[in-house]
Design a protein around this nucleic acid. Structure first.
Ligand SMILES: Nc1ccn([C@H]2C[C@H](O)[C@@H](COP(=O)(O)OP(=O)(O)OP(=O)(O)O)O2)c(=O)n1
Ligand SMILES: [Mg+2]
Length: 651
DNA sequence: GCGGATCAG
DNA sequence: ATGGCTGATCCGC
């Protein structure tokens, strides 16, 4: 952004920061980074010309291979909404357009409108500093649901250009418009212009678009003419090289503050420099980092859509919940926070039917030091109490401590091991109201309705849904089998768009989105996504059924449909943890408690309260021995590669 | 598997 | 005085 008085911004931020605990922590981290960079430089110094020459030959060979596989045949768009949260707020309150405004609060800002950015106000800047930079700054509270809805409006448009588009965060998406472009005879630039017009007309929001032969380039390009602009990288080798050569490394997704600093220390500022210094890079960095830098310097990137998680797959690696609060130090206070977090997390997990084996406690001290303590349990857990147990133990081991943030993360999820072509896994649908709303009930055929309620309540007369007995020890479920072959793709012809239905459950669903839909007459199930891959897998190892608390019942329509068939199933409530367990799982569940008990009896290892080893050492270093062979087993390292691989996949 | 760290949005 | 939250990944151990 032009017109920003950068010196003033730096000065103000520094003046407000210099005495804060946060700033001191930043300095501590910075010192470590510099230390690592220092070690790298020493290593670089020791390289002989012969070694460098050898590295150069290796790199050049790889470059030749990569060039040979360069694919310029596809046209990608990366769409990124402008000042997204702020723009949505402006749409609702147009008077905000002319004033500097930030979404967030005094402690933290999510984003700011372009008026506020003129003053240097940015995402992830604390509000009180922003206020000093821009005394007239207006704060608007964040309303995540509002942005989510706005996001859906944009995505409905993206779908017209690429039905399989990949949505990353709320405000961006990758579209492969090759087909659209071919069919319409329009160039990438024309498609981008049409899309931007459409988005603006329909949503009253503006976006910026990058057009390029791969995702990486499209992503970078979308940032070139922000806001409300577009930029094309032509699908031609020379154009691509020209574009990346001039690119400052910091613009490359995956190269952040630290990596930038590190490369700057070697006078590498642009992607052209990256190429010029390829021998040095090869000698200093891990194979995966080198590979990433090489791709970057060549302007190579993925040109495939993300893989859709199969049915029964979690669709994510972890789920977490963390909160910042006023400094706390008593165990009772901290345990209270832990309980709240565990409850919150358990509710979130229930929405997707997740169960995890690893529970991680995260603490941030008042000095902003972060500690994480992970526990891997003998069984998969999902309830608040199960999550809480290992957390409390880990917490106790950290006492005494003064904390400003606590978080809990659950990972290592249970995933249905579904083999391709296997029959659909059965699922549970709780009886009664959640399957049919009042309105939809009128649309259900009487027979089906009867059959359904029969199956639901059947012999379990003692429990009427949602009333009377609020704490039954036995419940009978409708067991619904939701059609199809798991792993197969449902033919498009079976699409039954616009059938009113309800979202009844989460977990591995037909399209991997997590949402399972059943229509009003209870004859068809399906998903909203574009990639219905057949049967849906619901349930967890303990087959915890869907419950009203878990996952909102939403109005939606089926993209595709599959037959539903019913049977009934009875579960009993575990007296120890409250989980619902079917007869078949009884033994497994008891074993699980046994294992937990045994673990609880194991004495807690005496752990020093002082922070663990603060010098990780070794990072950024590359123990060179193998002459540059890039085998998976090589253990050379440096933290650059951390993020790199992630983005190799994504972009 | 654990802990520290980087990155994105 | 006041510095968020969620998710992913990597490496050395
Ligand atoms: N540290 C951050 C960065 C972003 N966001 C949120 C607010 C943004 O509105 C949204 C999208 O992020 P972008 O990086 O795309 O930023 P904007 O869309 O706000 O601005 P731009 O016009 O630069 O894209 O994500 C956030 O909460 N915290
Ligand atoms: Mg944006």
């Amino acid at each position: 952004m032009g017109g920003v008085d950068k010196e003033r911004v730096k000065r103000v931020v520094f003046e407000m920061s210099k005495n804060s605990a946060h700033f001191k922590n930043e300095q501590r981290k910075q010192a470590k980074v510099e230390e690592r960079i220092g070690r790298l430089k020493v290593q670089a110094q020791k390289l002989t010309p012969q070694e460098l020459a050898a590295q150069l030959r290796l790199m050049d060979q790889r470059i030749a291979d990569l060039e040979a596989s360069r694919d310029l045949s596809r046209t990608w768009l990366h769409v990124d909404m402008d000042a997204f949260f702020a723009s949505v707020e402006e749409r609702d309150r147009p008077e905000l357009k002319s004033q500097p405004m930030a979404v967030g609060g005094k402690s933290m800002i999510s984003t700011a409108n372009y008026e506020a950015r003129k003053y240097g106000v940015r995402s992830a800047m604390p509000g009180f500093i922003a206020l000093r930079l821009c005394p007239n700054l207006v704060f608007v509270k964040t309303d995540f649901n509002k942005y989510k809805q706005a996001s859906e409006e944009t995505r409905a448009i993206f779908k017209c250009f690429d039905p399989d588009f990949d949505a990353g965060s709320l405000d961006e998406a990758y579209l492969d418009v090759t087909e659209y472009s071919n069919k319409s005879g329009l160039s990438g630039a024309q498609v981008a212009a049409i899309l931007r017009d459409r988005v603006r007309e329909v949503t009253q929001l503006t976006c910026s678009v990058g057009v390029a032969p791969n995702r990486f380039l499209a992503k970078v390009a979308s940032d070139m003419n922000k806001p409300n602009g577009q930029y094309v990288v032509e699908s031609e080798r020379h154009a691509v090289k020209t574009f990346v050569d001039a690119l400052p490394i910091r613009k490359v997704p995956g190269i952040g503050k630290v990596t930038e600093q590190t490369l700057h220390a070697f006078s590498i500022h642009t992607c052209h420099d990256l190429m010029e210094n390829r021998a040095l890079i090869s000698a200093l960095f891990s194979p995966s980092s080198c590979s990433f830098f090489l791709d970057t310097a060549l302007g190579l990137g993925s040109n495939k859509h993300w893989e859709v998680p199969g049915p029964g797959e979690a669709g994510r690696k972890g789920i977490s919940c963390e909160r910042t609060f006023k400094a706390l130090s008593t165990q009772a206070d901290l345990e209270h926070k832990a309980r709240e977090l565990a409850a919150h997390l358990a509710a979130d997990m229930a929405k997707e039917g997740l169960k995890g084996k690893t529970v991680t406690l995260k603490l941030k001290t008042t000095a902003f030091e972060v500690r994480t303590r992970a526990t891997t349990l003998p069984c998969f857990v999902s309830s608040a109490n199960e999550i809480l147990k290992p957390v409390l133990k880990a917490l106790a081991a950290e006492m005494p401590i003064e904390v400003r943030l606590m978080g809990i993360r659950v990972s290592s999820f249970y995933e249905e091991r579904v083999t391709r072509g296997q029959c659909a896994i059965t699922t549970f649908v709780k009886p009664g109201k959640q399957c049919l709303s009042q309105r939809d009930a009128s649309q259900a055929t009487p027979e089906k309705q009867e059959e359904f309620e029969d199956g639901c309540q059947g012999d379990a007369k003692d429990q009427t849904v949602g009333q009377a007995d609020s704490n039954p020890s036995v419940q009978t479920f409708k067991r619904a089998r939701l059609g199809g072959e798991v792993g197969s793709v449902n033919p498009v012809e079976c699409a039954r768009d616009s059938i009113p239905c309800q979202q009844v459950a989460h977990a591995g669903s037909h399209d991997g989105s997590g949402a399972v839909l059943i229509d009003a007459d209870l004859t068809h199930s399906g998903c909203q996504g574009q990639k219905d891959r057949g049967g849906c897998a619901l349930g967890t190892p303990q087959n915890r059924p869907w419950s009203p608390a878990a996952g909102a019942v939403q109005e939606c329509s089926l993209q595709s449909s599959l037959p539903v068939s019913f049977s009934s199933c009875t579960q009993t409530k575990c007296s120890r943890c409250g989980a619902w367990v079917s007869a078949a799982e009884q033994q497994e569940h008891e074993d699980y408690h046994l294992a937990l008990d045994l673990q609880a009896e194991t004495p807690v290892a005496v752990r020093p309260t002082a922070p663990q080893r603060l010098a990780p050492g070794g990072r950024w270093s590359k123990k060179r021995k193998s002459g540059g062979r890039c085998s998976k087993s090589r253990r050379s390292s440096e933290s650059i590669s951390t993020t790199l691989d992630a983005f190799l996949q994504k972009r």
